[in-house]
Each structure stands twice: as structure tokens, then as C-alpha cells.
């Protein structure tokens, strides 16, 4: 199984000379296998180019798993060409929004409201289906199994574990490791700490021994204190998660929009320098990168 990155940026697209290496499109990841329909994680702006690529072999059957419906993860969908073409099939999967009581269909249709986009959802020509997944639910797609794992973000966010061809790959979507809401010394501090451990364990047990983890590493350790509660991880928390579950490699993605190529190069070099032998491989995602899940490169 291979993974190809079509969008690696968090929050907003950042085209320009200084982001050309790691890429400016927002989150979109394609799972590439020898057989079976297209499996895609998230529909950020990167999905536009992927749609054009898929159109080269008609008819397209695509299964698009949406981690959550923040703009940077769905913004490319109205430009995903297979949606407009008769004979194509596109199946969407994602979390139900318990605050707005809305399923995925409602949210994505609202994105195509006439005031935002000139073509209405009802006018799309492909055969389209929507399925709201429950936590822990597994979907089979062309011999691959995709399982929804509830992560921690200001809205319901599913990470997706894909198991196929004897390999396991996990994509976190947007995720901030949950933190203790009490201070050390508070009566409840330890109790809450134990609850967090159980919560983390509920994620880890599903992704243990993953060959590869693709993780939201938006911030540096230095930036993080000002961003607590915004729902994103750091390069270090991602590496730590990969270590905890014994992953073969971790791919850092969802790059902070202000992060220029030179800075990402520097962080990459820093992590290479620190790496010990039994650490997972660390890769910084860049647009167009195709990685062998088993090899981590």
C-alpha cells in the first residue's frame, strides 16, 4: 500500500514561492493500492488535482473519508471533477455533528449553497452517497478495512485506520492530545489523569503496530503554549504517539500556514539529528510525495 499526498497544509491554502516544496494545498491524502476503488482521506484543496488524475481512468469510484468538516478538510470538494460526471460514483463517510444535529450530507450540501457555489448539490451528475459513521465503525472498501477512531478536536473528528494488503496506516485528521483540565495539586488531577490515559489507550489499542501514522503536527513545541485547546498536535506529540504504539514511521502533515519551506527543512533536520535507532522514521509530508507504507519512504 502506498500513500500519496495531494495537500499537506493546515487551515488555509498557502501558494507561493516559499511553500512550493512542501506545498500549499490543504489536506488530501490518497491511498494507492494495486486494486480496488480510490480511497481518499479528506477533501481539502488538494483533492482538485487528484480528481483530474482519477478522471484519466473512467469510470471513477471514489470513497472519501472526511475527518471533520472544518473548511481546510472539505474546501476542495466542489472542485472534485468526478462529482460532475455521469457514471462516476462517490461515497462520502464522516462523523455526525452532535451539536448541530447534522449528518455529513447536510453539512456538505450546505457548502454547495447557491450563495457559496454556482452549482447546487442536486445538480451533480455522479452517483453520490453519504454515510455518517459511528465511533469504532469499520467500513470495507475493495478488500481494505477502514475504521473510524474518535480523536480530540473542537468538533467531532475521526482519525481513520486503514488495514489492507497486510499493512496498517493511520491518519489522525486534526488532533490535539487531550490535556489534564486540572492543575497538579488539584484534588481531581490524578483522577482525570487516569481518565486521559484510558482515552489515549482507547486510541492506541486500535492503531498499535501501525506501519505508518500520518499525523497533525501543526505546531512546534515553542508555538504550542499559545495554541492550547485549538485542536492540533506538535511535531513532538506526533513522534511520541508513534513511539507509544510502536509505529514504523510517522509522517508530519497539516503544516502551519506561516511555515515556509526553509523552516520545515530545518525542523526536518532537527528531528533527523535527534533520532535514535529504535525510533520510528520521521517524514515531513510534501505535496506530490508518494510513500510506501511498509517502508516509510
Amino acid at each position: 500500500m502506498f500513500v500519496k499526498f495531494w495537500g499537506t497544509r493546515g487551515s488555509i491554502a498557502t501558494p507561493g514561492n516559499d511553500t512550493v516544496k512542501y506545498g500549499g494545498n490543504t489536506t488530501c491524502i490518497q491511498v494507492c493500492r494495486d486494486e480496488g476503488p480510490a480511497i481518499i482521506f479528506d477533501g481539502g484543496t488538494g483533492i482538485r488535482a487528484l480528481g483530474l488524475e482519477l478522471m484519466k481512468s473512467m469510470p471513477v469510484e471514489a470513497h472519501v473519508f472526511i475527518s471533520h468538516t472544518h473548511w481546510d478538510h472539505i474546501q476542495g470538494l466542489p472542485f472534485f471533477v468526478p462529482l460532475f460526471v455521469p457514471g462516476c460514483k462517490v461515497n462520502f463517510y464522516g462523523a455526525f455533528d452532535p451539536v448541530y444535529h447534522r449528518g455529513l450530507a447536510d453539512i456538505l450540501k450546505a457548502q454547495m449553497d447557491y450563495c457559496y457555489f454556482p452549482v447546487r448539490e442536486g445538480e451533480l451528475k455522479a452517483e453520490i452517497s453519504y454515510r455518517s459513521l459511528k465511533e469504532g465503525e469499520t467500513v470495507s472498501v475493495g478488500g481494505a478495512r477502514v475504521t473510524a477512531v474518535l480523536m480530540n478536536h473542537p468538533v467531532m473528528n475521526f482519525g481513520y485506520l486503514i488495514e489492507a494488503d497486510g499493512q496498517k496506516m493511520f491518519f489522525t485528521g486534526d488532533h490535539e492530545p487531550p490535556r489534564n483540565i486540572y492543575e497538579p495539586g488539584d484534588e481531581e488531577y490524578e483522577e482525570y489523569g487516569e481518565i486521559l490515559q484510558l482515552k489515549n489507550e482507547s486510541i492506541y489499542e486500535k492503531i498499535r503496530d501501525a506501519d505508518m501514522i500520518v499525523a497533525d503536527s501543526m505546531y512546534t513545541e515553542k508555538e504550542y503554549p499559545a495554541k492550547v485547546g485549538w485542536g492540533h498536535g506538535t511535531h513532538s506529540t506526533c513522534l511520541e504517539m508513534a513511539r507509544q504504539v510502536g509505529a514504523g514511521s510517522v509522517v508530519m502533515t497539516h503544516h502551519e500556514p506561516i511555515r515556509l519551506d526553509a523552516e520545515l527543512d530545518a525542523i526536518d533536520a532537527e528531528f533527523r539529528g535527534k533520532r535514535s535507532d529504535d525510533d520510528p522514521k520521521v517524514v515531513f509530508a510534501r505535496e506530490g510525495l508518494m510513500i510506501d507504507v511498509g517502508q516509510g519512504e
Binding site: F96, P98, V99, K134, E135, G136, L150, N152, H153, P154, V155, M156, P178, I181, E188, E191, Y192, I195, L196, L198, K199, S202, G229
Partner: peptide, 23 residues
């Protein structure tokens, strides 16, 4: 069932840890 979590939540603290503070 509306929420469809795979495990039982017994306390408010657990609810924060599992579904997140914002939700």
C-alpha cells in the same frame, strides 16, 4: 445511540476526555 460511542461514559470528566471540551 444518538451519540453512538463504543464505550460507556460514567462521569462528566470522562465525557470531557472522550468527546472533547468544545462539544
Amino acid at each position: 445511540a444518538y451519540f453512538g460511542l463504543s464505550r460507556r461514559i460514567d462521569s462528566v470528566k470522562e465525557a470531557v476526555a472522550y468527546i472533547g471540551l468544545n462539544t
